[in-house]
Simulated assay, not measured.
Amino acid sequence: MIKDPTVSVSPDNTTFNTDELNFDDFQLEDFDTPAATAPTLSAERDLSFFKNIPVTVTLEVASKEVPLGDLMKAGEGSIIELDKLNGEPLDVKVNGTLMGHAEVVVINEKYGLRLIDVLDTALSGVGK
């Protein structure tokens, strides 16, 4: 058995002698700059794995908060005025988060959307 000179062990193996521990032997200055010791990531990561993850894209026409009592009075033919003007771009949301704005188009008898703008914050962190 090799005895470590920095550790004193009593017969019951529960005593640690801190007087014999020399902290000068440790190079603690390396911990002052965590960015320097962190591994650097390649500028070009392979993101192909993420390309197959399904997300939900929603085109939100408009919204309006109404009291539940007013909504309970609504019936067939009732009109609820929304908060967006005719012709304004519609909100495009991905999994509930605003991605940008778009307009409605019809392609082959189906609705679609034409992106007008994409928010920079929607793509921040992708590929970094």
Rank of each mutant, 00 (worst) to 15 (best):
L47R: 03
K51P: 00
E20V: 09
L85P: 11
V55W: 10
K3V: 03
L113Y: 08
A102P: 00
L68T: 09
V105R: 08
T37I: 14
S8V: 06
I2F: 11
E109G: 07
L21R: 13
F31E: 11
S63M: 08
D24E: 10
P11H: 05
G100Q: 06
G112K: 08
E76L: 09
G96P: 04
M72R: 15
A36I: 00
D91W: 02
L68E: 04
D24V: 00
F31G: 00
I107G: 05
V92Q: 01
E103F: 07
L90M: 15
K110T: 07
E81W: 03
T58D: 12
G96T: 06
I80K: 08
D12L: 02
T18S: 11
T56C: 08
T14E: 11
K128L: 04
L68Y: 01
D4K: 05
V104P: 00
I79Q: 08
I107C: 05
I53L: 13
Q27H: 10
A122H: 09
T58L: 07
I2K: 05
M1N: 08
N13M: 10
T15L: 06
V106R: 01
E81D: 12
T6L: 06
F31N: 02
V118H: 01
A102E: 00
A122S: 14
V126N: 03
E20C: 04
D24Y: 03
L119V: 06
D70F: 04
D4I: 02
S48H: 13
K3N: 09
S10P: 01
L85T: 07
T14C: 03
G69H: 12
T14F: 11
D4M: 03
A74D: 06
I116L: 09
D30F: 14
L115A: 12
K84Y: 00
P34K: 11
L21F: 12
T14V: 10
G125D: 02
T121K: 11
T58C: 07
G96Y: 04
Y111V: 02
F23Q: 06
G87R: 11
P5Q: 09
G112C: 07
G127T: 12
S78I: 06
E29T: 13
K64M: 08
E76P: 08
A102N: 02
D91R: 14
L113M: 10
T18F: 14
L28D: 05
I79H: 05
P67R: 06
G96Q: 03
T18D: 01
T97S: 08
V92K: 01
T18G: 11
V55I: 14
T97H: 09
V7C: 07
N17M: 04
V104M: 14
I80P: 03
V104Q: 12
L82W: 06
S124A: 14
K64R: 15
M1S: 13
L123E: 03
S10R: 02
